[in-house]
Write a protein that binds this DNA or RNA. Structure first.
Lengths: 103, 103
DNA sequence: TAAACTAGTTACCTTTGCGTAACTATTTTG
DNA sequence: CAAAATAGTTACGCAAAGGTAACTAGTTTA
């Protein structure tokens, strides 16, 4: 469990994986699809998830450049888990104790 | 998903929930069961998870004092998810890229 | 020639997460 | 009287996570 958390235990990485559950996506698409994430965190999270074998980065040497991100087999194995995590909140949602805004 | 991550998106909270999947536990037990966690992070994580309705804190006014932590219904709903997350690592384990030690 | 598009990078800063170690309060036990 | 046990708290500090804004490079389009 601790090793899983060493890979996934941040606010944004599970959101990125969840967003890639049913599509490949380009950098700019991820930036647009995921509300509130900054490009900087997106860049570094993608890089680390690639190093950890969860996502695949494919660079097409075209003009303008195109880079597509998708889940590896290891990453795809997380899809049902991420979906359950997303549903968990919907089922048990309560107003946050601290007034912390989340879009 | 972002709301789920606002509650769970840290390295230790999922580990705490996983540890409580099949038992109530006292503070000192959790401290002993979870390798490498510090008492300080344990304290603050337990407090926040209680505020978020995931765990229940029961204080028995005895001597010496006894406090038991367990999962609420909302927390119990996470048990299968946490178990799958733990298994995910075992199935897809590879040597970490960065030499980051995890017990 | 200037603007737009893509996929970032860079600099700078703030906040959160986490660690270590020492300390507290209360009562029982030796 | 001192030590042990329980459940923390407190002080201090470091590193990682995260945010904002400006900038880069190469090419296509107006």
């Amino acid at each position: 469990m601790q090793r899983s958390m060493a890979i996934l235990g941040t606010r944004w990485k599970p959101v990125i994986i969840y967003t890639l559950r049913d599509r490949k996506a380009r950098f700019g698409q991820l930036d647009a699809l995921i509300e509130n994430i900054s490009r900087k965190v997106l860049t570094s999270s993608l890089k680390e998830l690639e190093e950890d074998g969860v996502i695949l980065r494919e660079e097409y040497r075209e003009l303008p450049p195109r880079v597509e991100y998708s889940l590896t087999e290891k990453g795809k194995a997380l899809i049902p888990i991420m979906c359950q995590l997303a549903k968990w909140n919907e089922a048990y949602y309560q107003e946050p104790v601290s007034t912390e805004l989340i879009a």
